[in-house]
Amino acid sequence: MTAAMTAATAQAVVPTARALRWAPPAGVAVLLLLVVGLAGSSGRPADTVLAIAAAGTAATVVGGLHDPAAALLAPVPVSAMRRRLLRLGLLGVPALVLWWVLVSMAPMTVHAGPGPLLALAACGVAVAVWAPERVAVLLGAATPVAVLAVDRVAPAGSTVAEVLGWWLTDPWWVLGAATLVCAAGRHR
């Protein structure tokens, strides 16, 4: 990466943050805080609620890749992947803070670390990178929710359930694989 590109990316942080639509993530955060707070106050394990929260948070982060001015910005030297990473960084930090708060509100959960959230988000980003342009962000944002939904309805012990459960059982491997898929599409 050239010095000019690094400087440009650094200078783009503030305007990119302003270009992001913060109302949907804020709405999702409030909703999740309420739901997890209620589930936590019951004193029962809140794994299902947290799984839904992970998918919801991941979907919201991936949804932040939607850029209304994408067509105008398509042929700028700062690549689409770099602009995606900028958006993900800006949304990812508050998402991780939210996740930490949610986990601390829910007693007796298996979702202790950020791994499951990062794995689901990375899968969504990988889909968004490779999906057709017009539906890329939509499909990417739907991916975490779809993974969770199919994981929940797949017959227990089946191969499908096992594979789709990797985001929970082996999140760092899933994150690594999804990152590689994203890296392979870095020029897209």
Partner: peptide, 8 residues
């Protein structure tokens, strides 16, 4: 747009 065109 100018920033993204690397005019720093």
């Amino acid at each position: 747009v100018a920033i993204l065109k690397e005019h720093t």
